[in-house]
């Protein structure tokens, strides 16, 4: 069985739109990780990192915050 490459996993984890290509990639990855524990764990790990970054990073800092810093 051919395992998923890191590129495939990253492309899958970072899918941000529903296009024909993305659906094909998702189908291939999901189809594989159903039967491959090793790749499933890798995908999960990448998803965890991706989720935690989304949760932690605040792209915009509000101005009040810097006013508070200056006080």
């Amino acid at each position: 069985m051919k395992h998923l490459t890191i590129d495939e996993i990253i492309n899958f984890v970072t899918i941000d739109s529903i296009s024909k290509e993305n659906l094909e990639l998702a189908a291939a990855v999901n189809g594989h990780i159903l039967v491959c524990d090793k790749c499933r764990e890798k995908v999960k790990a990448f998803q965890t990192v991706s989720d935690s970054l989304t949760g932690m990073l605040t792209p915009k800092t509000d101005l009040d915050f810097f006013e508070d810093i200056d006080m």
Binding site: V13, I15, D16, A26, N30, I33, R40, K44, Q47
Partner: peptide, 21 residues
């Protein structure tokens, strides 16, 4: 809803369908 569909497609296997193998 679009975001939800995308998340479901990406997470359906790891998040729900496969539990403990």
């Amino acid at each position: 809803m679009q975001e939800i569909y995308i998340r479901l497609i990406k997470k359906c296997v790891t998040g729900f369908i496969m539990r403990d193998g």
